[in-house]
Amino acid sequence: MKLFDDSKSPWVFLAPSLVLYGLYVLFPIVFTFYLSVTAWDGISSFPLPMCITSPETSCLSNFTELFEAELFWKSFTNNLLWLVFFGISPLFGLFLALFFHVKSNFASPLKTLLFMPMVFSLIVVGMIWSWFLQPGFGLVDTVLHLLKLLPPDQEFGLMTELGLAPNAGVILAAIWPHSAYCMILYLAGLSNLPKNVFEAALIDGANRWQLLWHVILPMLKPATIIVVIVTMIGALRAFDIVAIMTNGGPANSTNTLALYMYQETFVNFRYGYGASIAVVLFMISVGLILAYLRQIKKGET
């Protein structure tokens, strides 16, 4: 006797995870979209959209305010910086993966060392780097003083600048563990490649660059897609390292959209406005990733 007929059984097996997915992923997304048109402060009774509670305001006034806010554009610019410079880590990852793939016998202790930051919590990474960059007594200052590159009465002021400069310190800290992550993804990709193709290419007279460019890289494409997407997401949702190293400071110089969203929601208690930042961030992420995947698909045809 069968409990369910065959057409229903997939749904029965899927049900538990669908329920969880709906509850913890889909519902919060929809709810955030809804909150973004309200002016909820988190304490008043459940909110109706702004244009219903006060007809003279537009339902999108959170968004108009957002696009006029200096802090939004500052955070947005910083996220762009993240996309560009954090985006270097796949190159490091690829370089390391190729190195270790070739020299795999010698290099395993080194590989472990390089992989280590990946195991650390990002909070630990942030702490370590803020100590490195600590003005006055951090590692960077100490080394610069020792090498006489910086007069003893001066301090290396990277993290005290107002403007784009302190982002360098934060992004550098983030690149460290992320390169290790990219390395692991590429190593896995490399170990799946069939060896006989390399041999065939070498027999056909390809040099090492040609082998890399025309054989290995195209075959690594599935790994590259994953690596690029995790990197893009990592850059857009930059939060933990920033929060621990600078908390967005000095004076919001290193703020990112995710941190800005957190501050508006849980420091200033503007749940509606915070949700509108979340919506914009969501749109940017989805847009970027779709554009990238489309580009990939185009390349395939």
């Binding site: 960059l133 003005p135 006055g136 301090e155 002021g157 993290m159 005290t160 107002l162 400071g249």
Partner: peptide
């Protein structure tokens, strides 16, 4: 003191 913007109150 210098670098005030990059150090915590404990530091």
């Amino acid at each position: 003191n210098k670098s005030a913007a990059a150090i915590s109150w404990q530091e």
